[in-house]
Each structure stands twice: as C-alpha cells, then as structure tokens.
Amino acid sequence: MSQIKVEFVCLGNICRSPMAEAVFRHLVNARGYSDKIVIDSSGTGDWHIGRPPHEGTRRILDTNHISYEGMVARQFTEQDFENFDYIVCMDSNNLRDVHALPGSDQHSKVIRFMDLLPDEKEENVPDPYYTGNFEEVYRLVQAGCKALLDRIEQEELQ
C-alpha cells in the first residue's frame, strides 16, 4: 500500500492549517500510522511564506504537548493536486480558491474541514488571526482531525 497524503489549507498557513497539520500528525503518530500517512499544510495566500506558525497556534499546541517543530508556511500550488490524496480546506473561501486552480476538477478528495463535523453549527473553521479565539479553533481542529483519521482508517487502511 502506498502512503496516504493529507494536506490542510487555510489562508496564510500560520494559524488554522498548521494547527490541523500538527494535531493530525499527533493523532496519526498515536495510532501508529506515521509510516502510512504523510501530512502537510499550505495557504492560498503568499504573505507568510517561510514563517513559523502564529504565536497563538504555537501557544495552544504547546499547552497540549503537540509538536510543530520545523513547520513553516508555504503557498498551495497546482502541483498539490497531484501530490496529495486529501486536500482539506479550513473554510469555504479556501475551498473556492483551491477549486479555482486548474486541476481541481480532477481531484475528488478536496473537502471543507467542517464537513467532517456535521453536528457543529459552524460552516467554517473561524480564523483566529482575526478572532483571536485559538481555543475554539483547537476544539474544532481536534474533533475534525479525529473524524478525518477515523474516515481514512475505515476507507483506506483496512
């Protein structure tokens, strides 16, 4: 079996998507799938390329003993459609921006993160860069990453 490749996408790749990358990697490692699942993140914008995760993201990950070592922001590219099996967009705007790129129509596993959490009232993961609410974002990210890993485990790793 080849590796399953998962990418999380937000706007600047410093708050939500690196948080999801770190949380998902933590869950994947805890379940013993680190050799089977590759995880990355990116942003649709280019403002923060090369920068580490936002201080608020680092703080909540530190509080929960989740590593973000070596993570730096990068921009989503058309090549990502070929490189990743799952492209998980943190909000509807990110989803729209990803779908606007050539090649997205041939990629069936581009999904909106909150579709993993049908019982939540939010349609989008709120951007803590603007809201400052990293705790709520962490709660959603934790639940959504668990749901995604459960899905991958059921559909791909059986």
Results as ranks from 00 to 15, higher is better:
Arg25Asp: 14
Gly144Tyr: 00
Arg74Pro: 03
Gly32Leu: 01
Glu120Met: 05
Gln75Glu: 12
Val137Glu: 14
Gly45Ile: 04
Ile14Arg: 05
Gln158Gly: 02
Pro52Cys: 09
Pro118Gly: 13
Met1Arg: 15
Val98Ala: 11
Arg96Trp: 03
Leu157Asn: 01
Ser104Tyr: 00
Tyr86Pro: 08
Met19Cys: 10
Lys146Pro: 05
Gly56Lys: 07
Asp119Glu: 14
Tyr86Thr: 07
Asp91Ile: 02
Gly12Ala: 14
Ser67Ile: 07
Ala73Asn: 02
Arg31Leu: 02
Ala30Cys: 02
Glu123Arg: 03
Glu155Lys: 00
Arg31His: 12
His99Asp: 12
Tyr68Trp: 15
Arg74Lys: 12
Cys15His: 13
Glu122His: 11
Pro118Leu: 09
Asp97Glu: 13
Phe134Glu: 07
Gly50Pro: 02
Asp105Trp: 05
His54Asp: 15
Cys10Phe: 02
Asp119Pro: 05
His99Pro: 03
Asn13Glu: 12
Asn133Lys: 09
Gly32His: 06
Asn29Leu: 11
Leu117Glu: 11
Leu61Tyr: 09
Phe81Gly: 11
Arg59Lys: 15
Ile49Ser: 10
Thr77Met: 09
Thr63His: 11
His26Thr: 11
Asn83Lys: 13
Arg151His: 09
Cys145Leu: 01
Lys121Phe: 05
Leu148Lys: 00
Gln75Ala: 10
Ala100Arg: 11
Asp35His: 10
Val125Asp: 02
Asn94Val: 09
Asp46Tyr: 12
Lys121Glu: 12
Gln142Ser: 05
Leu140Trp: 01
Arg25Thr: 15
Lys109Trp: 06
Asp35Leu: 06
Glu7Thr: 14
Val98Pro: 01
Gly103Leu: 06
Glu136Thr: 12
Glu155Phe: 00
Tyr68Gln: 15
Gln142Tyr: 06
Ile4Met: 06
Arg96Gln: 14
Arg51Pro: 01
Lys146Ser: 14
His107Leu: 04
Cys145Val: 01
Ile152Tyr: 00
Ser42Asn: 05
Ala20Arg: 08
Thr77Leu: 07
Pro102Asn: 10
Arg51Gly: 10
Phe134Cys: 04
Gly132Ala: 08
Tyr129Phe: 13
Tyr138Gln: 00
Met71His: 05
Tyr129Glu: 08
Phe84Thr: 15
Phe113Ala: 13
Val38Lys: 07
Asn93Thr: 14
Met71Arg: 09
Lys146Trp: 03
Gln75Tyr: 06
Leu140His: 02
Ile66Val: 13
Arg31Ile: 11
Asp40Gln: 08
